[in-house]
Design a protein around this nucleic acid. Structure first.
Lengths: 142, 142
DNA sequence: TGTTAATTCGCACATAATGCAGATCAGCAT
DNA sequence: ATGCTGATCTGCATTATGTGCGAATTAACA
């Protein structure tokens, strides 16, 4: 199982080949996202980016995240509480959410295709997104 | 398979037994939710309610929906686009979302417990929430 | 080096939902 | 039936998250 993530260099040529420009702001965000397993919010990335590049705007962070999502290089997560989170791991994977601390974790699930769904007639499912709710190791008591 | 939904009468005694009062506004919302398969937004319920009870406030709709959710009589859904939706069916079920029209549909899935999840060490999963993305019958072309 | 369209930034704006407080009312005891 | 008391309702202000817009800037290419 190899993480399906693009390096900053790959993202750079990806952007250029589609007529998008590669600015210092974007390169910084590519780097901050690479290998990032924290499912950061836009605000969190903005805070990190601001330390390395004072003056970068939150608007630009959103813009770049939206561009990456449009290219399919970012999974966009809408957790049951809190703001949108971004996952640079575009592998076929799912998530576990701790109901105590709220943290999201990547989860791999086998044979999701075998799930028998009884539902709306004629609905053609292309993908299943699974979120496991529970309690993470750190939040277990006793 | 029987829908696990409370009648307005059941919700009424449910509320009373917990020290919550049952007002005309709440009774109206109980009725509007009973058997409602549309996964309405708060605004949609407010619009419906306003026709039957002019002057009811959006704030009250949110308040009642939050109370119902706290009692476990309402599933709260956070779709990938648009605002929060409420599902009075508290059966163990899942959802299918059409990426064309955005509609949500109830889906029943067997043997969800059999899913083998490889994920964070020590995470205790209590429930899996599955959302199938795809295209509904009405939105199929050709 | 010049050209041009994409990008950045900052502000205004939009949307969804909650906080607050005075007026009102449901539920219970009498 | 009446009164009491805390829960509720309403309207407004406020928060939180994210987008629209336009002038200034800049990446990419000739």
């Amino acid at each position: 199982m190899v993480l399906d993530v693009r390096t900053p260099v790959e993202l750079t040529s990806d952007f250029r080949s589609r007529g998008l420009k590669v600015t210092p702001q974007r390169q910084l965000l590519f780097r901050l996202l690479y290998g990032n397993m924290t499912h950061p919010t836009a605000e969190a990335l903005f805070a990190q980016a601001s330390e390395l590049m004072p003056g970068i705007s939150l608007r630009t962070v959103y813009q770049t995240l939206n561009d990456l999502a449009a290219l399919g290089e970012l999974q966009v997560l809408h957790p049951s509480s809190g703001s949108t989170r971004f996952d640079p791991n575009v592998d076929d994977h799912h998530h576990a959410r701790c109901r105590t601390c709220g943290e999201l974790h990547d989860v791999y699930v086998d044979r999701v295709q075998d799930l028998a769904m009884r539902g709306p007639v004629g609905f053609v499912a292309e993908r299943a997104n699974i979120v496991f709710d529970g309690v993470c190791a750190d939040c277990q008591v006793g």
